[in-house]
Nucleic acid binder design. Structure first.
Length: 115
DNA sequence: CGTGTGACACGTA
DNA sequence: TTACGTGCCACAC
């Protein structure tokens, strides 16, 4: 078992993280390996908040979930984490458009939501 | 209660 | 193709 992000997040302080944070992290966790969702996709799926809110949550709690599966709509890798993300993508077989710099092949990597 | 700030999205040049 | 402006929405000051 994979320890859940919530374990630490909820126990992190006197006041538990907002439900919104909970939902965002849950959404990120259910993205299958080899697939990705954009910040906007998650925001739309939650029907709450926007892409920037999702990004904000991931920036703070991303370390507890597969953050590399949540990407920008243009397919560019997260600045400052390109190598880390790339390693995961290659390991999971996530569709990439090799080049310089390498980018995600959003057309094929984007998860339609069906497991 | 106004202003600034983001791991964003999208249209336009 | 990249760069910039505008819209967006929750949150800290």
């Amino acid at each position: 078992m994979s320890p859940e992000y919530g374990t630490m997040a909820r126990m992190a302080g006197p006041t538990r993280v907002s439900d919104y944070t909970d939902r965002v992290l849950s959404a990120a966790e259910r993205i299958p390996p080899g697939r990705v969702l954009t910040y906007g996709d998650i925001a739309a799926g939650l029907a709450e908040g926007g892409p920037r809110q999702v990004g904000g949550v991931l920036s703070r709690y991303g370390g507890a979930v597969p953050w590399w599966r949540v990407v920008r709509a243009d397919g560019r890798l997260l600045p400052g984490h390109e190598q880390r993300a790339l390693a995961h993508y290659r390991a999971e077989g996530t569709p990439l458009r090799d080049g310089d710099p390498p980018r995600l092949d959003m057309r094929r990597a984007r998860w339609d939501g069906t497991p």
